[in-house]
Simulated assay, not measured.
Amino acid sequence: MEAGKNKNDGAARDLKPLMRVLARAFKLAVARVERESGVPGIWWFVLGVLSRRDGISQGEFVQEHEIADPSRVTRTAQALEAEGWIRRERDPRDNRVVRMYLTDEGWRVVGERLPRVNEEVERRARTVMSEKELAEFERLLGLFSEAMR
């Protein structure tokens, strides 16, 4: 191997700047949310979805959000249930289906903590982007998400 060359140099070159920037931005954003809220990012994601679609089944959640590892949703739901923030129930029409519901405590957490976290993320974004740039950023991320489907 040539001096100064690393066997991973090719892999590093293959990771295009766009992917590096997206990965870093996502990692930093999730870490910030977790630090400021004390709640794991995946928990916030599940709670946010339930706040809009209380009673969604774990299977629907996995399909709609294209989660590769369904057991991750199960483990997350079990942890949220142990915390007292959600309850899981078998669907009476199909015992194989498990539905997730926010508890009163879960609604309180979503209502009190989630807005503060969202406001802090937006406040930080506004320190480096104008309102117009932020709106364009959201639009472009939406387009990018569609392109990745």
Rank of each mutant, 00 (worst) to 15 (best):
M1I: 07
M1S: 15
E2R: 11
E2M: 11
A3N: 04
K5E: 09
N6Y: 11
D9F: 10
G10K: 07
G10Q: 12
A12L: 11
D14L: 04
D14E: 08
L15R: 05
P17W: 00
L18V: 02
L18Y: 03
R20F: 13
A23D: 07
R24D: 12
R24E: 15
F26M: 13
K27T: 09
A29K: 05
V30N: 11
A31S: 09
V33F: 11
E34T: 06
R35W: 02
E36R: 10
E36F: 08
G38R: 01
I42H: 05
W43E: 00
W43Y: 15
W44Q: 13
F45Q: 15
F45V: 05
L47M: 15
L47I: 13
G48Q: 13
L50A: 13
R52K: 15
R52Y: 00
R52D: 14
G55R: 02
Q58N: 14
Q58F: 02
G59V: 02
F61H: 09
V62I: 10
E66C: 04
I67L: 08
I67S: 05
A68W: 01
A68Q: 03
P70G: 07
P70S: 04
P70C: 03
A79K: 01
I86C: 00
R87G: 08
E89Q: 12
D91S: 01
D91I: 01
P92M: 06
P92S: 07
N95W: 11
R96L: 12
R96I: 10
R96M: 12
M100N: 13
L102Y: 09
D104C: 06
D104R: 04
G106A: 09
R108T: 13
V109K: 00
V109G: 00
V110N: 08
E112D: 14
R116A: 13
V117R: 00
E120N: 03
E122W: 00
R124W: 07
A125G: 12
R126V: 01
T127G: 09
T127S: 14
V128Q: 05
S130C: 04
E131M: 04
E131Y: 03
K132F: 04
L134A: 11
E136Y: 03
F137S: 12
F137A: 15
L140A: 08
L141F: 10
G142L: 11
L143Y: 11
F144N: 10
E146A: 10
E146C: 06
A147V: 08
R149S: 04
